[in-house]
């Protein structure tokens, strides 16, 4: 186990290095620059700014400089948000997105898993049919529609929930629900099909033949086997949901990290693009290692090499 984790960390570092390199050069292939806008500053100003941030140097020198900083966990200053370090932006905005995303995922798990289980054991009955229709709906309808509809009903028409910002616990309800919609539907479907597969296994018949109640055989024998695909899905899904959603953050005016992903690109805020990409890569790799370890704990047949 120990050597496995060390190996995965080493591979992770190489991956992050590659991601950083590729992103860096791709970024420079895109035309435009950070200091261009409708009221373009004078040529002199731009040159001065570029000198200040080292953008006047050849690309490979810039790359080497950036990598030197990266080794020291210095992601550089933001070019658009003057005077702010990329690390600071992530530090202040990530917790907001992570809190929302974490709550949404928790909600999705708490609803999705039981819903999937009950669908599977009532396969073909009305409960199953209704759940499946809801799930298909949940997967098919895009997030901005869900968010807007929720906002319109609970915020505008009924006036029972706040629609902007995150000032009180009540403020969390709508954005968390909107965020949780898709993963709930997805987890339900995944859980249902995985459960159906497990229920048909021979060891479930053995459990019944031993005289176990349906409840016990379901929760002891079926669930542990059926939950594996969910774990696989949860790893990367968590990495994405924790880093925030552009749509939900924009609609509910939440100062999270999700919006930064898109705005940093339109702004050509090179250090911020780099910083966010590397941060997401780091989260993804971490989540995958955690998934592997959890997998090993749940299923003893898995060998970590």
């Amino acid at each position: 186990m120990g050597s496995y984790i060390i190996k995965r960390i080493a591979v992770g570092i190489v991956t992050i290095f590659l991601v950083a390199t590729i992103t860096f050069f791709l970024m420079y292939l895109v035309p435009g620059g950070p200091f261009l806008s409708e009221k373009s500053p004078s040529k002199q100003t731009i040159e001065a700014l570029e000198r200040k941030y080292g953008l006047d140097k050849p690309v490979y020198i810039q790359y080497l400089n950036y990598m030197k900083g990266l080794i020291k966990f210095d992601l550089g200053p933001s070019l658009k948000m003057r005077g702010r370090e990329v690390v600071d932006i992530i530090k202040t905005r990530f917790p907001i997105s992570a809190k929302l995303g974490g709550l949404a995922m928790l909600l999705a798990i708490c609803i999705g898993i039981p819903m999937g289980i009950f669908s599977a054991i009532n396969r073909g009955k009305w409960f199953d049919n209704i759940v499946m229709v809801i799930c298909t709906f949940g997967i098919a309808v895009p997030g901005f529609v869900v968010a807007t509809v929720l906002m319109y009903f609970f915020g505008v028409t009924l006036h029972i929930l706040p629609t902007r910002g995150l000032d009180s616990p009540a403020h969390y309800i709508l954005p968390v629900t909107a965020l949780a919609f898709y993963p709930t539907a997805y987890i339900s479907r995944l859980m249902r099909s995985s459960m159906l597969d497990v229920l048909g296994q021979d060891y479930m018949r053995t459990a019944k033949a031993k005289g176990l109640s349906q409840f016990k055989s379901l929760f002891k024998h079926a669930l542990r086997n059926a939950v594996l695909p969910i774990i696989t899905y949860l790893g990367p899904a968590l990495a994405y949901i924790l880093t925030g959603s552009l749509v939900v953050e924009k609609i509910f005016t939440i100062p999270g990290l999700g919006r930064q992903f898109v705005s940093s690109i339109t702004d050509r805020d090179y250090p911020l693009i780099m910083g966010l990409t590397i941060f997401l890569a780091f989260l993804l790799i971490t989540m995958n290692v955690i998934v592997d370890i959890v997998y090993k704990i749940i299923d003893p047949r898995i060998k970590l090499k």
Partner: peptide, 14 residues
């Protein structure tokens, strides 16, 4: 009862 296939009749995770 003893079933036909011992390879799949035991739960792999216990």
């Amino acid at each position: 009862i003893i079933f036909q296939d011992p390879m799949t009749s035991l739960n792999p995770v216990y």
